[in-house]
Simulated assay, not measured.
Amino acid sequence: MFITFEGIDGSGKSTQARLLAEALTAEGHDVVLTREPGGSPGAEEIRRLVLEGDPDRWSAETEILLFTAARRDHLERTIAPALAAGKIVICDRFADSTRMYQGLSRGDLRGLVDQLHGLMIGREPDLTFLIDLPPEVGLARAKGRQGKEERFEDFGLDLQVRMRAGFLALAREFAPRFRIFDGAAPKEEVSAAILATARTALGARA
């Protein structure tokens, strides 16, 4: 099963992806925890290009190409081999983030994102967990990390507001695979609900 986590910056999705991977591993599943952009040596190199530096470093069109290239390498070298081996792949972000960050939030480029996705990636997750959070809370959390990878946070609150609305719209568009969780709830409550949902989905595929 291919499971992804999505949400605005600072929503807690990376933490929840890790907690789910740990819980499923403890239950005896063979789990690969990965992330985007990144997840393979080549994709990690591209990650540094797109997440560091000035907000205006790349145009949205260039970013789409970079993210698609990273995703293709990630798919070839990490995701597809793990799924073929019968493992559960849990990924922190996937194509839905590109649909939002480059496809909608910085111009009307969703069609281009989907066209490249169809040509070069060709698959969607089996299950997507959207961690929803008020944009001002997420941005404060993200900026509080004080890391180097803050290029998208530096676009400010307006981007995060549009991103949240976009992710919720995307969840309606792809309703069969999306599940929405309240990122403002206690971390333990959210992780327990996510684990229960994952167990049900895995049981249905057994």
Rank of each mutant, 00 (worst) to 15 (best):
F2S: 03
T4R: 11
T4F: 04
S11K: 01
G12S: 05
G12L: 05
G12V: 02
T15R: 09
Q16E: 12
L20G: 11
A21I: 05
A21G: 06
A26Y: 09
E27T: 11
E27G: 08
D30Y: 01
D30E: 02
V31W: 13
V32S: 06
L33I: 07
R35C: 14
P37T: 14
G38Y: 06
G38M: 03
S40D: 10
E45I: 13
E45C: 15
L49E: 04
L51W: 02
E52V: 01
G53R: 04
G53V: 08
D54R: 05
P55G: 15
R57T: 07
A60L: 15
L66F: 09
T68D: 11
A69F: 05
R71L: 10
R71Q: 08
D73A: 04
H74R: 07
L75T: 10
I79W: 00
A82D: 09
L83V: 11
G86L: 08
G86M: 07
K87Y: 00
V89R: 02
D92S: 13
A95V: 09
S97I: 04
Q102M: 15
G103S: 08
G103C: 14
L109Q: 15
L112C: 05
L112T: 12
L112K: 15
V113P: 09
D114S: 07
H117Q: 08
I121R: 07
G122P: 04
G122C: 02
R123W: 05
P125L: 04
P125R: 15
F129T: 07
I131C: 02
P134N: 04
V137H: 09
V137K: 08
A140W: 00
R141D: 05
K143L: 06
G144M: 06
G144C: 07
G144A: 14
G144W: 09
Q146A: 04
K148A: 11
R151I: 01
F152D: 00
G156Y: 01
G156K: 03
L157C: 00
L159V: 11
Q160M: 10
Q160G: 05
V161Q: 15
M163C: 10
M163S: 02
G166L: 02
L170P: 13
A171T: 14
E173Y: 13
R177Q: 03
G183H: 03
A184G: 15
A184N: 03
V190D: 11
A193H: 10
T200W: 10
G203L: 04
A204N: 07
R205L: 11
R205C: 12
A206D: 13
